[in-house]
Design a protein around this nucleic acid. Structure first.
Lengths: 231, 231
DNA sequence: TATTAGTATTGATAAATATCATTTATATTC
DNA sequence: GAATATAAATGATATTTATCAATACTAATA
């Protein structure tokens, strides 16, 4: 088994996927004896778009980005992955290829588990299968929200959405480390990095946030929510 | 049972969802005796965003649009639904609410089936559960493609994508009836209806398509593909 | 047929956003 | 600590896209 044992057995892993508790003892043992712990440094690619979707990825620690390698080498960041997340892209059930890449943003500890084993378990454990459905569906709902944000909001609204996402869904705090570069913020919001800089400055000038390269603090959440809603 | 019997029993329905063949005789009977056939006129709302996700919708004939009612009454069209499609939005596995609306574009014959019954069957029939996973995953892959299209392509590229989608995925022909208004084409591509008009005209002027209000014919598919790729 | 409502079209203009060039800051490495 | 690379910031400008206003078209209906 590769790497140091950050998680001795899956059911005791502090970052265990919530749905692992749906597994029987023997199923858990199967998963446990077929997982590969790995660590990643910031920037390292964990899953490569186009490669066979043979493994799911469980995030134990750190933050990663799921992103599509699009046109002319431009990326589009679909989502951020945090501890407790399972990353088993939809390609696993479509063409057995990863349809997006995943790369480490911070240092990461993670486990790879065979997608075939998870699929097999889902065939005999219906609660587990349903939990996979719930996972895909949650991501679908979030995708839909992203699409509306992109289609119907102007830059400040889209950037407000990402700041609220970081604050609420990733860090759970109003003050957080800015783990994304301006470039990456642009790849999440469909805007040029220079525009990210300008809009952040505007938000700072109007007292909505305080911000430097390394962190953001939300000073006036209601104004930020207003920006998000008014587009 | 409401409406006239366009589909006598589900396993014989000519527009049957491909995954119905995974059901046992008794499961099929359960579905069959708990479905409600309905017809819709163009424009009628079949599923309303925000309402309880108590039913799935099976498309028997006609074309519908799945759309999110977004900001300031603006819609965003997620997808078109054609015969053979099942529409069981992801909300069914998230918060039991429909997270988007579905409305008839053409005249439509469809069946409603209880979402609870489908969920229940999926718990004992793992092949059926897996087919649901495949369905959600296919839609996820398409969502991702849409997002890249919106984020990284200019208007002509996005509109090319929609024309190719209509041609390839909905009609299966190079010449097809234009069932969407310019407004709706804009709601699929995130552009103003006036711009849709102008880009269509440009495509016509450059010999890529011929087009009038009622129909489109793709004259030069390679140029259209090129537009789609070059953004 | 006249009327009406919705849709499509067109041109002019305004607004939003991207790009380019340059400078400054920050971090990393030797 | 100097050298280098990467990211951030800034201003000027070009491009893209939306909006507005007006007109033409189409289809349904009284």
């Amino acid at each position: 088994m590769a790497g140091q044992n950050i998680v001795n057995i899956c059911d005791k892993c502090t970052a265990g996927w919530k749905n692992f508790k749906l597994l029987s003892k023997s199923e858990l043992e199967t998963v446990n004896s077929n997982r590969y712990e790995t660590t990643f440094k910031p920037g390292e690619v964990m899953i490569k778009q186009g490669s066979p979707a043979s493994n799911a990825l469980f995030m134990a620690t750190g933050i990663a980005k799921s992103y599509i390698e699009g046109i002319n080498g431009k990326n589009f960041i679909l989502d951020l992955e945090k501890p407790g997340n399972i990353v088993l892209g939809p390609g696993a059930y479509v063409n057995s290829r990863h349809n997006y890449s995943v790369a480490a943003i911070t240092s990461i500890q993670a486990c790879f588990v065979s997608a075939d084993i998870l699929k097999k378990i889902s065939r005999t454990n219906s609660a587990f299968a349903e939990s996979l459905l719930e996972d895909y569906c949650s991501r679908a709902v979030r995708s839909h929200n992203r699409m509306v944000s992109m289609a119907q909001k102007r830059m400040s609204g889209r950037l407000a959405d990402v700041l609220l996402y970081l604050s609420h869904d990733i860090f759970g705090r109003d003050e957080f480390e800015m783990i994304l570069t301006r470039q990456e913020l642009g790849e999440m919001t469909s805007m040029a990095k220079e525009c990210v800089v300008r809009i952040l400055k505007e938000m700072e000038d109007s007292g909505i946030i305080s911000s430097d390269t390394s962190g953001v603090k939300i000073l006036d959440k209601s104004k930020l929510l207003n920006l998000s809603e008014k587009g």
